[in-house]
């Protein structure tokens, strides 16, 4: 869609609803970890809980099925289950994987996080 106003041309893309996504690398590591844990068909629970230095801590867990009222998101062939309250604090997050010797493991790039603690596992909004 385009719009012309006072000689300027702007392009407005339809806004995508905020969601939670996982990078291909991270999805691959989840699948690998699930297979090693003897749960090759498991999906990933992504959530938040109170605590951690900054107020809220990220939660990752391998689960077989969603809970009632969970949001179910499918990305790169992996199902993510998110409870509705956690979703409020995670909308827009991209779950990535940082590997190698200096890697941090799973990393939450969360646009809602205003502060994070030193170790990066907790955040404040």
């Amino acid at each position: 869609m385009g719009a012309r106003r006072k000689g300027l041309t702007t392009t407005t893309e339809p806004r995508k609803p905020l969601t939670i996504s996982i990078s291909p690398d991270a999805a691959e590591h989840v699948r690998k970890f699930a297979a090693q844990s003897g749960k090759p068909n498991a999906s990933l629970r992504v959530g938040v809980k109170g605590g951690g230095c900054s107020g809220l801590t990220y939660v990752l867990d391998l689960v077989e099925a969603p809970n009632e009222n969970d949001k179910v998101i499918e990305d790169h062939g992996l199902k993510l289950y998110v409870d509705k309250k956690s979703y409020v604090f995670l909308a827009g997050t991209i779950l990535e994987y940082s590997g190698g010797l200096n890697g941090k493991g799973f990393v939450f790039n969360n646009p809602n996080a205003k502060t994070t603690c030193g170790c990066g596992t907790s955040f404040g909004v």
Binding site: G50, G51, C53, S54, G55, T57, C117
Partner: peptide, 8 residues
Amino acid sequence: GCYIGQEV
């Protein structure tokens, strides 16, 4: 271990 405000 961790609790809210622990780092500070």
